[in-house]
Design a protein around this nucleic acid. Structure first.
Lengths: 346, 346
DNA sequence: ATGAAAGCGCTAACAT
DNA sequence: ATGTTAGCGCTTTCAT
């Protein structure tokens, strides 16, 4: 029952095999829950593993089989929304032999390429790419090399599965909510996009589409007003400044992301206006801070947890069968109304 | 100049050696910038690598040498403060051959053990543990196995290096600021701790110590008042409720972390009090949301970026020389005053 | 300075 | 059901 005497050399499968008086194959099979081991052997091997405190080397396993490691790439570790997705992932993966490792936050195609390559070099068994901005070609390349699930990006592919939130519908929720309150001049701050792939696939572009579609559906086509900046605090600040300078000022602003709303609130306060009395603000993501009392931001909640769970499930399915046809899952967002939205000034 | 024709088989060092008409040893040496390769050979090999698009397999490298991978364990991916540290890390590591991979957020000793083991199994060349709660014994065990730097936890060890913020001084900054404003009844919400190791080493415990020390130094020993809950939003809510129920209410609350302040603001608002007119609130971490206009929280800023850079530097030093004596680095925090602190009501 | 060859710890054919 | 053995792609002696 005492610990093995300070083993400077790591315990290997050979040690376990000798200790259990069986072959290394037997140990390997037990490790992988593979077919063809008697209960007796199972027991012997498991006991030897426990007694010696053996842990398989992922590097060695990776040379021949799997590494039991799943790589997750996410663009911005600061966005708490991604943490929700990770929780969902881990929920599903906790009971499996797989271990999740995250790439450090990426911004831009170059950084994404570096991380995806690094993960491929490290023989990840599967990869989950969250809201990647890389070209489709790169995504397909990655997915051809290793089982891949792309999260938070629309557009179907034959080589990878996708899980995304219905951003089009989410934008509609915001417009409907504001229009129901009586707003007509509802403006939008979007993340500027020119790349055709991304215009068709990135959530920011879909949200802008959804905004316009919903405005038209409410008979507000003439009121459509978009400030095109970026999904950053500064983007929100500049975007709101632009909108407030219009001849006829909007009575409500739909910011494409919560962080954008933070910048917009700055600009609105500087302009001497009150929220929501003078102007309403709604956003997207329902990040943790949206719920903080001083902020109390009306925001679209993406089912982050569910997104993560589904991504994990799809990935394990694909690892099991790489030929399986690609699946697209689209989840429905909900609107959380708080204190930044109210009827327009009389 | 055309791409190699869709290599289903990954390019190996052998392919490169043949293409360059040299030995695999030569290629390996070039890869590792090892001693004993002529410039001619360098050039030939590098060209072959580029032409074939060769990338070394980390798994295979890990069997004999290094994996060029550094594992980072952090407790809570939602805390933006940790993102600062990561940025600092990446700054220093970007120019090296090392790749950072993060463990998923950990909470509690068990999860930390799982992640640290997973990283050891994956032959990480080094590990950075951010604010770990594990026992010293476990930390020492990890550090004996692989070069390790512990960040955000006090207490010196002979086996691992540490980088921490001076939490004792940081707490003093808060108390001094509030006392300078004229406050006397300055209360503190701490994260409850009983484990002796952690009482001596964890930032939350040191902050509570620093608070008491500073109060005494200002002649406010009699005003010391601590609510012992946890570093969570709920902990802040409950802690503030306790403090507001005192016979003599505090005029200022020092929350041990920004997230704690968010909960405290809830309780204060529910009690019908205004911040900062009726009661001041200051906190610790200067997380991103502390700066958001509706929040504008006075908070202690830890030099997260610098912490990260230093941790990376120490780790590379230790990887280069595992016998080097352990180093402790302590950085100085600063106070960022915003709109949640003001003189006490008259 | 260069190369041949022996492993690293595992998995997977292939026996038995 | 169990064991033997040949690699996986590198790094590292050790010759030359």
């Amino acid at each position: 029952m005492d610990k093995p005497p300070a083993p400077s050399r790591r315990i290997t499968i050979v040690d376990v095999a000798q200790h259990a008086r069986v072959s290394t194959t037997a140990v390997s099979k037990v490790l992988r829950n593979a077919y063809g081991v008697s209960p007796t052997m199972q027991a012997k091997v498991r006991q030897a593993i426990a007694e010696l405190g053996y842990r398989p080397s992922a590097a060695a396993r990776g040379m021949r089989g799997q590494t039991y490691t799943i790589g997750v790439m996410l663009p911005d570790i600061r966005n708490p929304f991604f943490a929700e997705i990770l929780d969902g992932l881990n929920d599903h993966l906790a009971d499996t032999d797989y271990q999740v490792l995250l790439g450090p936050g990426c911004n831009g195609e170059e950084a994404e390429a570096k991380v995806t390559h690094a993960m491929i070099d490290r023989s990840m068994d599967g990869m989950i790419l969250i809201a990647p901005v890389s070209s489709r070609a790169h995504l397909e390349h990655v997915a051809r090399t290793v089982p891949t699930v792309v999260v938070g990006r629309h557009g179907r592919s034959a080589t990878y599965d996708t899980v995304a939130d219905d951003d089009f519908a989410g934008a509609g929720l915001v417009v409907d909510h504001l229009a129901d309150l009586g707003h007509r001049r509802i403006a939008h701050i979007e993340h500027h996009e020119t790349d055709p792939d991304r215009l068709a696939e990135m959530p920011n572009a879909i949200r802008a589409d959804g905004y316009q579609h919903a405005m038209r559906a409410r008979g507000l086509a003439g009121e459509i007003d978009i400030a095109s900046t970026s999904y950053t605090q500064e983007g929100g600040y500049l975007g709101a400044q632009q909108l407030l300078a219009r001849p006829v000022r909007p009575t409500a602003i739909f910011a494409g992301a919560d962080i954008v709303a933070m910048g917009a609130l700055d600009a609105i306060a500087e302009a001497g206006l009150r929220v929501p009395e003078d102007i309403s603000v709604a956003a997207y993501d329902n990040t943790t801070f949206a719920a903080f009392r001083p902020i109390s931001l009306t925001s679209v909640d993406q089912a982050g947890h569910q997104i993560g769970r589904n991504a994990a499930r799809l990935l394990l399915d694909r690892i099991a069968d790489r030929q399986r046809p690609a699946t697209q899952i689209k989840l429905s967002p909900t609107l959380v109304t708080r204190r930044t939205t109210a009827p327009p000034p009389a």
